[in-house]
Design a protein around this nucleic acid. Sequence first.
DNA 1: CTCGTGACTCCCC
DNA 2: AGGGGAGCCACGA
Length: 120
Amino acid sequence: MSKNLRNQNAGSDMDFFTRVYQVVRMIPSGKVSTYGAIARFLGSPQSARMVGWAMNNSHTQKDYVPAHRVLNRNGMLTGKHHFGGSKVMEELLESEGIQIVDDSVVDFHAHLWDPNAELI
DNA sequence: CTCGTGACTCCCC
DNA sequence: AGGGGAGCCACGA
């Protein structure tokens, strides 16, 4: 299944957004990923912005999308404003065992879940 | 239909 | 070292 999400698989009939949502749903609780890693996994490293856009629209999805687990490449909570409150995203992550200081994940690399490495 | 914009990132001065 | 530009694609005005 994970293989079908990769863009290099020309047979994929899902659009970019849909694949973004699928990947984000695979991020395990207690882990985080990045816009860039997801974009790269989908075969468009330059389309990290689209991942952000997808997260912006993720609330329109029927199925839950853990958008709070997606951060920028520095492990900063750049999208926290879109969670209504300024602390909502932070609290969601901390409830999953991730420590946040100054809008950044503590020991970010240790919590990083990279689909390129995990979903081969 | 064209234009601007965005939860990003990389490359090049 | 840090700032600026380009690339990416969808969507609303």
